[in-house]
């Protein structure tokens, strides 16, 4: 079993410095990894990112993060990522990382993702340049997630997790006004997850949404936006898949 702690939308700034640390200090007792599902800052400033970095530095469990739209607001997303990496976090955008938890290998693939909507009510790559670019950005994020998950499949991971900020499914948006769903997620993320395969998908972004959902392909989805879970983080116990084949578990290459 792998114990996955996750939270998104912590929206930290100087006025919330240290607020989450007492809860985060309990992580080694209850979790093997902490996932941060974006919107870690309020405006994406380096001052706010330093607060987040201090909050996660030296936690005793590995930290894997994606950025959210708020973390892009000040146009310093690379600096924000750099500060989080300096604090020890793996920050993913169309990338994957493999963590060793005991004898198990835990793969996390991540992207911020983007909007566009869901099947039957989604934006198309048509018309004005800005509209086409909107959809292309969403497609690029989803392609990056799919490629990263496929890479994890080749790396003999026992568990694969898709980490995004935007939602892959509409179920976890329940509670938000339906009119804004196209700004909260995209079916392209779910299609990437179902195509490449994953054991769990975790996202944030939808503060008024719901925690539980599932992709069409049966992958469990959890919205871990802090206002949704009402805690500093939630913990999910993921069973390890049984390895099949006599030589399963032998590292490739």
């Amino acid at each position: 079993m792998i114990r996955v702690a996750a939270v998104g939308d912590i929206h930290m700034g100087p006025d919330t410095r240290g607020v989450l640390r007492p809860a985060f200090d309990t992580l080694p007792d209850c979790a093997d990894v902490l996932l941060l599902a974006g919107d870690l800052t309020r405006h994406g400033t380096t001052d706010e990112a330093r607060v987040v970095a201090d909050e996660i530095r030296g936690l005793g469990v590995p930290v894997v993060a994606v950025l959210g739209n708020h973390d892009h607001h000040d146009d310093r997303q690379d600096e924000v990522s750099g500060l989080l990496r300096d604090a020890g976090a793996h920050v993913l955008e169309g990338e994957a990382t493999v963590l060793s938890v005991g004898d198990a290998r835990v793969g996390v693939a991540g992207t911020k993702g983007f909007g566009g909507g869901f099947v039957g009510a989604s934006a198309g790559e048509f018309g004005e340049p800005v509209m086409k670019e909107f959809v292309r950005v969403s497609r690029r994020c989803a392609d990056g997630l799919r490629t990263a998950l496929e890479r994890l499949a080749e790396e003999d991971c026992d568990v694969r997790i898709a980490l995004t900020h935007y939602s892959p499914v509409p179920e976890t948006l329940a509670g938000e006004p339906p009119e804004i769903y196209p700004f909260l997620g995209s079916y392209l993320l779910a299609e990437a997850i179902d195509t490449a395969g994953a054991d769990l998908a975790v996202h944030g972004h939808a503060h008024a949404g719901s925690e539980h959902g599932m992709t069409t392909g049966g992958v469990k989805v959890r919205n871990v936006a802090q206002p949704v879970i009402g805690r500093a983080f939630h913990v999910y116990h993921l069973p390890l898949r049984e390895r099949v084949g006599a030589d399963a578990g032998t590292p490739a290459g």
Partner: peptide, 14 residues
């Protein structure tokens, strides 16, 4: 205001 306490249970995923 967001609640920042630790969770009191975990969810078991099958």
């Amino acid at each position: 205001v967001s609640e920042s306490s630790s969770p009191d249970h975990a969810e078991e995923l099958s």
